[in-house]
C-alpha cells in the first residue's frame, strides 16, 4: 500500500547524502542552554526585530519563534542529512524539539540544528555558472582513463 512512499523515501535519502554544514562542533555542541551565549545569538537573528522586542518588557509581543533547520545522523558512519525544520525560541530548545519531532522512531544518533537564516544557498537562477562548468571535466572521474588489458588493482 505504501510501496510508493517507501521507494520515494529511499530515493530522497540517497540523493541528499552530502549536505554537511562545515561547523561540526559548533552547531552540534551547546546542550547547555542556560549558559550558551553564542546560542542566543542565533535565536535572536532568527527572531528578527519582533523577537528582540520581547525581552524589553512585559506585554511585548514575542511573535513567532524563529525557524531552525534540522539535520539528523541516522547512524554512526553516515553524514547528517537534512530532515526538516521547526520553530524554537533558542538553540537549546530547538535541539530538544528536533529530538522529539524527528527521532521518535530511532531515526537518529546525532542531531544538528541551524538557524534557517544562517544558511546561505546557491541560487537556482545561477545554476549554470555554478554547476555547468563541472560537466566538461570528465578527467576527474576514473572511468575517463583507459587501462591496458590485464592490469589489476588499479
Amino acid at each position: 500500500m505504501s510501496a510508493d512512499a517507501e521507494d520515494a523515501g529511499r530515493r530522497t535519502t540517497a540523493g541528499s547524502g552530502g549536505t554537511e554544514p562545515s561547523a561540526d562542533a559548533g552547531v552540534g555542541a551547546g546542550p547547555d542552554a542556560g549558559s550558551g551565549a553564542g546560542v542566543g545569538h542565533g535565536a535572536s537573528a532568527g527572531a528578527g526585530p519582533r523577537g528582540a522586542d520581547a525581552g524589553t518588557g512585559a506585554g511585548a509581543v514575542a511573535g513567532d519563534w524563529p525557524l531552525w533547520e534540522v539535520f539528523v545522523r541516522s547512524r554512526r558512519g553516515l553524514s547528517h542529512v537534512h530532515a526538516g525544520s521547526l520553530h524554537a525560541p533558542d538553540a537549546a530548545m530547538a535541539l530538544r524539539n528536533a529530538r522529539d519531532l524527528y527521532t521518535r522512531r530511532q531515526e537518529g544518533v546525532s542531531v544538528w540544528v541551524v538557524p534557517s537564516t544562517a544558511v546561505t544557498a546557491s541560487s537556482p537562477d545561477e545554476k549554470d555558472p555554478f554547476f555547468a562548468p563541472a560537466a566538461d571535466k570528465p578527467y576527474r572521474h576514473p572511468t575517463f582513463y583507459e587501462l591496458p588489458e590485464g592490469v589489476r588493482n588499479l
Partner: peptide, 11 residues
C-alpha cells in the same frame, strides 16, 4: 502552548 510541546509532553 505550542505544537512542539504537544509532541514533547506526549513523549
Amino acid at each position: 502552548p505550542v505544537l512542539e510541546e504537544d509532541v514533547a509532553l506526549a513523549n
